[in-house]
Design a protein around this nucleic acid. Structure first.
Lengths: 227, 227
DNA sequence: CATTGACAGACCGACCGTCGGTCTGCTAAA
DNA sequence: TTTAGCAGACCGACGGTCGGTCTGTCAATG
């Protein structure tokens, strides 16, 4: 009998590399950290690393997947709870996303610079694609329910899901830009509010809701980040 | 006095490097080509290259700026022509963008693979940011005119411009995904049409136009790329 | 007015450090 | 006895540097 692969401990060891990879991506950026950096933090060898990953890019893939999982888990509750209206589900998803960031404010602030840097362009790209894909299936379900219940009015729920996912991801990116601009004193808080209101207005119209019934981000959250 | 700098010939020489850089980005991808590749194509030396550029990243910056210029020039005509309604300007901008790609079909097809590859994530990121910035100022002007003339109805033209730019860039990206999916036979043409219709519907609602009065891409163009 | 020296621009290419990745080999679990 | 799980020496490619060369330009000099 030859030695068999233990999936349990294998996964644990592998996860340790992913942990460090994620941390390094969030501090130095993917292109800026080296495989040696990972080895140093774990007292591991090249052989160990390449035993678990085919390449540095493979590690990236694992990190991005974990990040996408983390985002998806945030939405799990409002999606699984029965008896909620499509509107309520949607509002819950947005609210939870904001809450997640508010609760981790220090982390987000510390990571922001590295995250936005050129060194993380591939990371952002891959995460956007992955989150978009998962968010689309989720939003399609909500839209279908909303249309069936008469809450929303869109011609094609699935196609519209793509539109809205794009909109949501655009808000996120724009929020990042605005935050930096605000830090640098290049804009006022009022401009930030107007931007979010424009996105909310767009959202209401796309989905077929009455004006001023949707808020992407509540005033307190804007205060927390932009005052 | 010493030797003087001739801006003319300096710019010409520098542009030669940018030419090659752009070609290599479109064939191999930014991360995949080496500075040596550039030197080989021009029979130049390392010294020459680093005389004109501080780094490989500097070359990228120059290439991206040139690409953004090319995009912007496409819009010049409908923006400068007096007497056009906001609607007409908008339609012209969209039509010209589609025409540009249709006219360069072979080029686009040849470049697509490299362009979408991981090696060009930074290129896409930088171009998106730059084009967004320029397109926003343009769209703000159109929206203002449209609101003033009563053609459009948005609360805040400038903020809404950001929304629409995001929407347009999302369509572009989605179109790329759909094209690949169609090539692989994973989707039907009908699904493509439905997607574009959903974006058009969203656009109409955001801007406050009647249903079915806007088309992002006309049926022939869809036929050309997706049949 | 012709000559020359000073100096910056425009390179050249050998060289260096770094970094992703490979390869050989050892050890212990099964 | 076979193979998972490592260890770490080693390799080659690549971005970037650096000392040096050649040439055009102009001011001072004789």
């Amino acid at each position: 009998m030859a030695r068999t692969l233990n999936p349990q401990s294998h996964a644990v060891k592998r996860d340790a590399f992913v942990d460090v990879g994620q941390r390094l991506i969030q501090t130095k950026g993917y292109e800026a950290f080296t495989v040696q950096d990972v080895l140093d933090e774990l007292d591991a060898s090249k052989g160990a690393f390449y035993h678990y990953f085919g390449s540095k890019a493979d590690l990236l893939e694992a990190v991005v997947e974990r990040m996408a999982d983390a985002v998806e888990i945030t939405w799990a509750d409002p999606m699984s709870r029965p008896g909620l209206s499509a509107r309520e589900r949607l509002e819950a998803v947005f609210a939870l996303t904001a809450q997640w960031k508010n609760a981790r404010r220090e982390l987000v602030l510390g990571v922001l610079d590295a995250w936005m840097s050129d060194h993380n362009a591939i990371v952002r790209d891959k995460l956007r694609a992955l989150v978009a894909s998962r968010m689309t299936t989720l939003l399609t379900a909500i839209l279908r329910q909303g249309v069936a219940d008469g809450d929303f009015s869109v011609t094609d729920p699935e196609a519209s899901a793509h539109v809205i996912v794009g909109l949501v991801q655009t808000v996120q990116e724009r929020a990042g830009e605005l935050f930096v601009a605000r830090q640098d004193g290049r804009i006022e808080k009022a401009e930030v509010s107007r931007t979010f209101e424009a996105f909310a207005e767009a959202f209401e119209r796309i989905v077929g809701l009455s004006p001023h019934t949707v808020r992407f981000v509540d005033p307190q959250t804007i205060d927390l980040w932009f005052s």
